[in-house]
Amino acid sequence: MKIVAVCGMGIGTSVLLKMNAEKVLASLGIDADVEAADIGVARGAAQTADIVLTSDELAPEIGDVPAEVIIIDNFFDLDEITEKLTPAVQ
């Protein structure tokens, strides 16, 4: 399974999102490749991904992709990420 974490610049928020998504996936026992990407390359990366994680503001910029787009409000909240990611990966 491939997951892309997307932010505007690819250095800050997407990296945090990737770290916390990996924690959640590890606790769920799911093997997935999580990649951090900036919005410029995200559209391409999202074509081959199963899931895209991003924020409410950036979701419209990603546009129409085959991947399931999941919006995370609080990037530090492992409970929120777990709740939203679990149905998508199982």
């Binding site: 932010c7 505007g8 610049m9 800050g12 928020t13 945090l16 919005i39 924020s55 409410d56 503001e57 950036l58 910029e61 609080n74 990037f75 530090f76 909240d77």
Partner: peptide, 12 residues
């Protein structure tokens, strides 16, 4: 960055 992409930097 915020003007272009919105206030997504408010991460929590």
């Amino acid at each position: 960055a915020v003007e272009e992409h919105g206030p997504y930097i408010v991460i929590a």
